[in-house]
Amino acid sequence: MIFGMWDAVYFKLGPIPVDHIIVTQWVLIVLIGLIAFCSTRKMKVIPTGLQNAFEMIIVWTYDLFGQIMSKEHVAKRWTPLLSTFFLFILVSNYSGMIPGSSHIEGFQAPTSNWNVTMTLALITVFAVQIAGLSEHGIGGYLKHFVSPMPAMLPINILEEFTHPLSLTVRLFGNVLGEEMVIAFLMFMVPFLIPCTIMALGVLVGAIQAMVFALLSASYIASATSAGH
């Protein structure tokens, strides 16, 4: 245990050790699923309440990603994935902020563990490759490695590895850094002062969720764009 990070393994699912972070993610997935199910059960033409809120999120993310991708069919195909990234990361970032959560095992934000963010980044990488393949075909996909000239080949290949690395480190570093600062302030001044950092954490959580989705969108956009 380092700085309030637990590493308890509850049970093993085959070769995979299931710890509190995985259980937290299951709970979050069920939570998002339940809210989505409840809001779309009786859909109306003029939305009210939950359906309204969900439609607002979906339309907003669709506009945002569509603006980056600039190709209608690409945006239509990949927005569901990116919106899911946004929602899941947002809820994950906020799960560490439930009052009293720092005293209960399992309420640590899952995104403050690099395994989780690495998984999300790997999904993005595969999505980028699939998007490039389905847009340009095999020839066009291989050709983009040697564009604009063959000398750029190593850099283009290196890029495919640095994208997931930077996505991973950014999300996990931000969330972990903020949690560490809160933990350290709680240790020094247990009252009121950590609240200011937590208020900042609400902002950072939303911005990081958006940044992850935006960067994934821009990677997909550059893989599917004509000039690359």
């Binding site: 945002l64 603006q67 480190v169 950014r170 570093g173 972990l176 958006m210 940044v211 935006l214 960067l215």
Partner: peptide, 27 residues
């Protein structure tokens, strides 16, 4: 406004990554 804001956030993200690398080393 919308375009500039989106690009600003993307640029922020790229800058921030370098800062976070330092933080990671510290951790």
């Amino acid at each position: 406004g919308g375009d500039a804001r989106t690009l600003m956030f993307i640029t922020f993200a790229f800058i921030e990554t370098l800062t976070i690398y330092g933080l990671l080393i510290a951790f």
